[in-house]
């Protein structure tokens, strides 16, 4: 890519939730920028498909089935990167098992919050803890966590999802301050890309037009729109950027 110095030759990246959508797009972008990638997700067939695509294009990819929030699987994921390629330079915490719309007064909300927190917040924390010694000893690294405009906007019915995403932003900023001295940069990306499920929800709730009106650019993004920012944040071009929250959402979030 020409625009942002996003070259990752010799780097090793872990991308979670990479069997489809945004995670897959980031894995493909990293691989074509020269990184070796470890991709994780829950569905083996999807991971095999993404891995095959990367390898067919001359890239290097390996896959593991892993559920975000499972410490043993987080440990194995990092171990796979180290045993295969000896290092981890970039971690993209993209996986998130999210729950459906639920108003605050619904007693099931507590369980939903645990599901979102376990997968997205605890899952991100676990992988960060597992990659930390490797990044520290190698002299640095870049961690990209996924927040959401929903965390900023506090949309009714999405407390479980949004609070996990805001907890992730706090994790990002705290880690940026604790780990800056080890040259480990940590940033939060706020992506907005239409998944089939999101599209279904917007149509089901008759909110498609209302949501679209909040997007300054006037269209919903695709996973390929998200990948360039993830590439920039992983690359040396962003060496002085840490602790930041950056939206790639067509201008629907303004922080």
């Amino acid at each position: 890519m020409a625009g942002s110095g996003g070259h990752l030759e010799g780097r090793v990246a872990i991308i979670t939730g990479a069997g489809q959508g945004i995670g897959a797009a980031i894995a493909l972008a990293y691989a074509s920028a020269g990184a070796k990638v470890i991709i994780t997700g829950r569905t083996q067939s999807k991971l095999e498909e993404v891995t095959a695509k990367i390898n067919a294009e001359g890239g290097a990819a390996r896959w593991l089935t892993a559920r975000a929030g499972n410490r043993e699987e987080a440990r194995k994921t990092v171990e796979e990167a180290i045993s295969a390629w000896g290092r981890v330079d970039v971690l993209v915490n993209n996986a998130h098992t999210f729950t459906d719309y639920l108003p605050i007064e619904d007693p099931r909300l507590e369980d939903n919050i645990r599901i979102d927190m376990d997968s997205a917040f605890i899952g991100s924390l676990q992988l960060m803890q597992c990659v930390f010694p490797h990044m520290r000893d190698a002299g640095g690294g870049s961690i990209i966590n996924m927040g959401s405009s929903y965390g900023i906007r506090c949309e009714p019915g999405f407390l479980a999802y949004a609070s996990a995403k805001e907890a992730i932003r706090t994790l990002t900023r705290t880690a940026a301050r604790e780990w800056g001295k080890h040259k480990i940069r940590v940033n939060t990306l706020l992506p907005a890309a239409m998944s089939p499920k999101a599209l279904w929800y917007l149509k089901e709730s008759n909110s498609y037009e209302a949501e679209l009106s909040k997007v300054a650019l006037g269209y919903f993004g695709k996973p390929d729109d998200i990948a360039p920012l993830a590439l920039f944040l992983a690359s040396e071009a962003s060496n002085y950027i840490t602790g930041q929250t950056i939206g790639v959402d067509g201008g629907s979030t303004m922080l």
């Binding site: 020409a2 625009g3 942002s4 800056g180 360039p228 920012l229 920039f232 950027i241 840490t242 067509g250």
Partner: peptide, 25 residues
């Protein structure tokens, strides 16, 4: 300059209204 170059690249077309701190944290 790197941040300006990124925002002005062809690939950054879905990013707008953002304020990116280049401040070492």
């Amino acid at each position: 300059a790197c941040a300006c170059a990124f925002f002005t690249s062809e690939e950054a077309g879905y990013i707008t209204a953002q304020v990116l701190g280049v401040n070492g944290g």
